[in-house]
Design a protein around this nucleic acid. Structure first.
Lengths: 258, 258
DNA sequence: CTCTACTGTGTACAGCGTACTGCTCGAGTC
DNA sequence: GACTCGAGCAGTACGCTGTACACAGTAGAG
């Protein structure tokens, strides 16, 4: 991707426009020439399947084209480049849960909690989502709808627009942040072929001296209590803490403003 | 990196051992042969500087070697591979704030808040930290010390070991998650050469119809209130909400156990 | 001195994204 | 029906990547 950056810097937003056009479906379809054998949707689907199955590192234009039985360059008839394709993949993935999210019921906490859980499940289904260095927040229809639904959950309970947005941001930041480390830890075993037991054994070989020297008192204490290997669910714990934190604000607002 | 995955899968943890050895300083220094002109620390420093200045995409072994005035392959005399070098970079970065973190004073909330702020500043200083797909949680001395300090902030206030770990995890997950999107948004303007105003103008060109159709009621409402362009600090807001959430738990524990 | 462990480098390979070129197909126009 | 020309598709090539491998030069150990 040598020319990627310079190209992007000089094209004055043309690539951005093309991306948005593809996501929002504003592309005029041609009348002349042979019928296209592929479609943007087919390519995006194949790319998602490949990324799900083999990870982001395996996602190359040649591999995608191979899975579709065409040459690598054929993809460029449908998509401007790989980075735009990734934008499309991301927005497509967000569409998966929209129906469920729309159907959520209950109070603000219950509905926001459902949003958090859905986002969490989404990341577990598509781990590559967290590895992509998006570089820019390309807002497609599905990701925007998803955000809209989350905002709807906490509308009308006394929060300002800024606070509502902040609430959604803090929740999804937590979910994304935890998902990233969790998924990386899960994938570690597969990639290295080292089990968790072997892993900690090797680690302790080197960490040991520092522990003995008393330089890591809390990690030692927490480790000896078995907190690293327990079934404690960090997602559930954190989710409730974040919601508790929002509840404090909401309860504080209610009597004065709402 | 064609052989990266397979190599990792077959070496049975040798690469992991080498990484740990480098981080924890357990490598025996050789006596024979010419004195090494470089050192691991020099290489790591150069790599961090390069990544800070030009981003992760520019971080190639050839570029690092060039900055040090040596051939690309010379680096492999000090470091097993690029991924191990990145591990070292990460741990080195964690060392920057340890002195300050050790010095923090006050109650649990004040000290934990300081940890969150430091991590936030760290990500802003080294944006590439969030783009690396670590693949496995390589625990170096500095990252472990950093975690230890954070745990110390909430020790002895009635939380179980698991809850203490959970508290640190939820805070740093939030910080990392928000930092990732924030940094990406900041870098977007540089990379694309499109200002925020132009950006929203282009976006609204396509999003507009959906807004008019009433499909995004909340985003419309929030946008019209100016919440997207305001000076509202999502980090400060979220930080307080997370700490509030933890406080709820701690206050609830105190009378019964602490 | 020789031996040998060690540093540093050049070359080579497989793979990447994609610019460019050319071939072939087929609907629109006459 | 013939011609035109936009459009789909593929091949080649370029510059980039990480790094395996072979080899040259150096300096402490014996």
């Amino acid at each position: 991707m040598p020319r990627d950056e310079t190209a992007r810097r000089t094209d004055g937003g043309a690539a951005v426009r093309r991306s948005l056009q593809l996501m929002w479906g504003g592309a005029p379809e041609p009348t002349r020439g042979p019928k296209p054998g592929l479609s943007v949707a087919t390519i995006v689907r194949a790319a998602i399947d490949l990324a799900d199955a083999e990870g982001l590192v395996a996602l190359s234009m040649r591999r995608i084209a191979g899975a579709l039985g065409v040459g690598a360059m054929s993809l460029y008839r449908y998509v401007p480049g790989k980075s735009e394709l990734v934008d499309l993949m991301v927005d497509e993935v967000y569409s998966e849960d929209i129906a469920d999210a729309e159907a959520a019921e209950g109070g603000w906490r219950q509905r926001l909690e459902a949003c958090g859980r859905q986002e969490w499940a989404l990341y577990l289904r598509h781990p590559w989502m967290l590895q992509i260095a998006q570089g820019r927040p390309m807002l497609g229809p599905n990701s925007m709808r998803s955000t809209d639904i989350a905002l709807r959950a906490i509308d009308g309970i006394g929060l300002s627009e800024e606070e509502m947005l902040g609430a959604v941001v803090v929740l999804s930041s937590f979910v994304a942040g935890l998902a990233k480390t969790t998924i990386e830890a899960m994938q570690a075993a597969d990639r290295t072929g080292i089990s968790d037991e072997e892993w900690w054994e090797i680690q302790s070989e080197y960490v040991g001296p520092a522990v003995v020297a008393g330089e890591l008192p809390m990690l030692t204490k927490v480790g000896e209590a078995g907190a690293f290997n327990s079934m404690f669910d960090h997602f559930e714990f954190g989710l409730q803490r974040v919601l508790d934190g929002l509840e404090v604000l909401i309860e504080h607002r209610r009597p004065t403003e709402g």
